[in-house]
Design a protein around this nucleic acid. Structure first.
Lengths: 346, 346
DNA sequence: TCCCGGGCTGACAACGTTGTCTAGGCTCTA
DNA sequence: TAGAGCCTAGACAACGTTGTCAGCCCGGGA
């Protein structure tokens, strides 16, 4: 009825652009841009007219176009193993907080521990032109990221080191933590100690196993290979492994569990047993203190890992493109709660 | 030394574009586009030349530009309360899986239970032109999303309903679940039952309280307002509340905990007590079965909430823009483990 | 009165990609 | 052998925004 000549004023699925706003406010395109971005040099009266048009049309700036023009997306990517794993929640959250403090958005995805999926995800994030990337590696060859890093994508690896490329890395002291945990069991009189861990191709698993062996060796103990079990961390596999090393003529009297999932399964197995078996687990978990007995753990600080990595990333973005890659290792902490202090049955 | 006339071949921070690839391969721009997108109509020989140029330059398509041209981003946003909360991990993961199945990327952010931050985040996601939005509301007024929804952003609310707008919503049966849980305690002989919940402005908290009151009323019991405590779910507040209702001349003999964080804190309080107090908590949590006694809970299926919401969202994106908003309510399930079956002390 | 300077404003190109359209070369058939 | 038809390839505009630059208008000083 009124002026229909104006064009596509917000047809369904057809969002208004600055051009529409400009037309409606009777100003130039660039003036709208100035108002939207809070730049100076616009008369209060003009600004008001533009604001009204924005309001009326429900305009929102298209950041894709903006990114295209400006080159930076103000977003970073996070590739982790599984968001549903309680270890990664706090880590992810910490990264997000740092990103937020730098005005960036976090895009994340789960690799499900699959190297191909990790690569697919990381490259998809690069295609969105994230400014930086935090990666918890699933694979062990990251040369596919080389062109991206060279092109300026700040990249930091967390929890596990990058494979076959130089890059910033933030790790926990997996070796030292495991060694301390096993030493703790040895101190309490154990000689036959089992180790149940994740697949050996995973760096953390390998390091923790190394720590186990080192502690045993330091104490002059020989490891019976029947005490060592590596593989997936699903409950069935872990249960079988635990039951195997707890039975037989020379059963282990203590178990070192290689990560939180393993620990929980082992707790369940031990709960069905009569005799006392000692347990120390890598990774702390909620309620560990409320179990009977409380579960002694090697705690790593997931939030600190995330925070450290993200801060490193933004330091690189804020100028320091050419600093040499660094490897940062965070200490672990033994939290004694009882399960590690059980002496061996005689 | 050789041909420098070619231009900016991948200067640091200056990524190669299709134009660069085209120049290097000696073909037209559009041909590169065809190869990159796997379109047909390119000679094997030409394709090989282009692939080599891509490889050599480390080219990767700029999705920002692509999005700008095509209109769809193949990404959806998730606004939730806190990624570090174990309840949201599986939910987020479920949304991600559905998104992945539809070839979309998930961008998520935490509102930290702050309505302003929720709005800021949701609108930032809209500015990135996500195709859809899954929101776990922190605020109770979502009219700010109206222009976005009208413009075609498929939006689904989860866990709590949208405020003051019509939109798809996926909820648990908070009222029914709480009523069942409290009825369970009443069945086991309790008459004085406490309720510790989240802030009443949060929909789930209000519904659960309503369920509590309904169960009490159904059983002909009067609620002493000293038994009801609502507020933040930090451990200090909850501990104080629990201790208050457990002391005095007429202490409660059972507690219904309004969510997982409350439950855990209450478990800790009860662990320090001598007398038996019954407990039922809303939300299941890992290891609930391993505590002594096992904790009886009302379980909701976080993954199903996320999956249902995401599927609804994509159904809307894949054509059904104009279906009327729907409210889907998922059933809860009482899992009896012992703590709810304790009879009242006499 | 004229000129100069400063403050607002808008025209225009560019960012990197994709859709459309046209040109050219080839094969196949009559 | 000529024409039709198909297949490959490239030129060009457009997506929505921002940086650059030039023009306009107004007030003040000479």
């Amino acid at each position: 009825m009124a002026e229909t000549a104006r064009g596509t004023e917000s047809r369904y699925g057809n969002r208004p652009t600055m051009k529409d706003v400009a037309a409606r406010a009777g100003v130039g395109l660039k003036t709208v841009s100035r108002v939207v971005n809070g730049e100076s040099g616009v008369t209060p009266d003009t600004e008001r007219r533009v604001q009204e048009a924005i309001e009326a049309l429900g305009f929102r700036r298209n950041d894709s176009a903006r990114v295209l023009r400006k080159g930076r997306t103000a977003s970073i990517g996070l590739v982790l193993e599984d968001l549903a794993d309680p270890f990664y929640g706090p880590l992810s959250r910490a990264v997000e907080e740092v990103a937020r403090a730098h005005g960036a958005l976090l895009i994340n995805g789960s690799s499900a521990e699959d190297p191909d999926r990790e690569q697919e995800l990381a490259l998809a994030l690069c295609a969105r032109r994230v400014d930086g990337l935090v990666v918890i590696p699933a694979g062990d060859d990251h040369r596919y990221l080389e062109p991206e890093i060279k092109a300026g994508v700040a990249t930091v690896f967390v929890d596990r080191p990058a494979g076959r490329i130089e890059a910033d890395t933030v790790l926990s002291d997996n070796f030292g933590g495991a060694r301390d945990g096993v030493a703790h069991l040895i101190e309490h009189g154990h000689r036959r100690i089992g180790f149940i861990g994740d697949q050996p191709r995973i760096h953390t698993a390998a390091e923790r196993l190394r720590g186990y062996r080192a502690a045993m060796e330091d104490a002059g103990l020989t490891v019976d290979e029947a005490w060592v079990s590596l593989g997936t961390t699903d409950a069935g596999r872990v249960r079988t492994a635990a039951e195997a090393m707890l039975s037989g003529p020379e059963p282990v009297t203590a178990i070192f569990a290689g990560n939180n999932r393993v620990t929980v399964t082992v707790v369940r197995v031990l709960a069905g047993l009569s005799g006392p078996v000692a347990l120390v687990g890598f990774d702390d978990f909620e309620l560990a203190d409320l179990l009977q007995p409380g579960v002694t753990v090697i705690a790593q600080d997931a939030a600190a890992l995330g925070r450290t990595a993200a801060e490193r990333l933004f330091r690189r973005l804020d100028g320091g493109q050419d600093v040499a890659p660094e490897r940062i290792e965070l200490a672990t902490r033994l939290i004694a709660r009882g399960s590690g202090e059980i002496g061996p049955a005689r």
